[in-house]
Computed example of a mutant assay.
Amino acid sequence: MRIDVYTPLVLSLLLAAVSPVVGRRVAPALAARVLTAAAVVTAAATTWALVLLAGTLVSEAPPVAAEAHEDGRSLPDPVPGVIAFAAVLALGVIAYRVCRALRAECATRRTLRGLCEGHPQDTELIVAASPVPRAFAIPAGSGAPGRILVTAAMLGALEPAERRVLLAHERAHLTHRHALVSAAVTMAVAANPLLAPVRTTVVFLIERWADERAATAVGNRTTAARALARAALIAVHASPVRALNFTDRAVTRRVAALQAAPPPRLLPLAAAVLALGLLPAIGAADATGDFVQLLARTLPL
Rank of each mutant, 00 (worst) to 15 (best):
E159Q: 12
T222A: 14
L13G: 15
E70A: 15
V10D: 08
P133Q: 02
L89N: 11
E117M: 14
A214Q: 03
A32F: 03
T151D: 03
A43F: 02
P145D: 09
V26Q: 02
A168G: 11
H176M: 06
L194T: 12
A65H: 05
R25N: 04
A270W: 01
A235T: 00
P280F: 01
L267W: 12
R253M: 12
P62C: 07
L167F: 06
A68Q: 05
L53C: 10
A66H: 12
L295N: 06
A39V: 06
T123G: 07
R254P: 01
P262C: 04
T46D: 14
T288K: 01
P63F: 00
A232Y: 14
H178K: 00
R265K: 09
P240E: 11
A37D: 10
A214S: 07
V58A: 09
G55H: 05
S182C: 13
V189L: 05
L295H: 05
A128W: 13
A54I: 07
E70K: 12
L228A: 09
E60T: 13
P8Y: 03
G72I: 06
Q259G: 11
P240V: 00
Y96V: 15
E124Q: 05
E170F: 01
A16N: 00
A261K: 11
P28E: 08
L167E: 12
V241W: 09
L89I: 14
V40L: 03
R24N: 04
R97L: 01
T47G: 10
P120V: 05
A272C: 06
P240H: 04
L299S: 08
A104H: 13
S142H: 15
D211N: 05
A210S: 03
L233D: 15
V18E: 02
G23V: 02
P193K: 04
D4H: 14
T36Y: 03
L158Q: 04
A250H: 15
P28V: 01
V189S: 07
I282E: 13
H69G: 14
T47C: 05
R253A: 14
E162A: 00
S182H: 15
V251A: 13
T222M: 12
T186G: 03
A272N: 01
R164C: 08
A61P: 11
A39F: 07
D211Y: 04
R242M: 11
S12Q: 00
F136N: 05
P300G: 09
A285G: 11
A231D: 12
V21I: 14
I138G: 02
L115H: 10
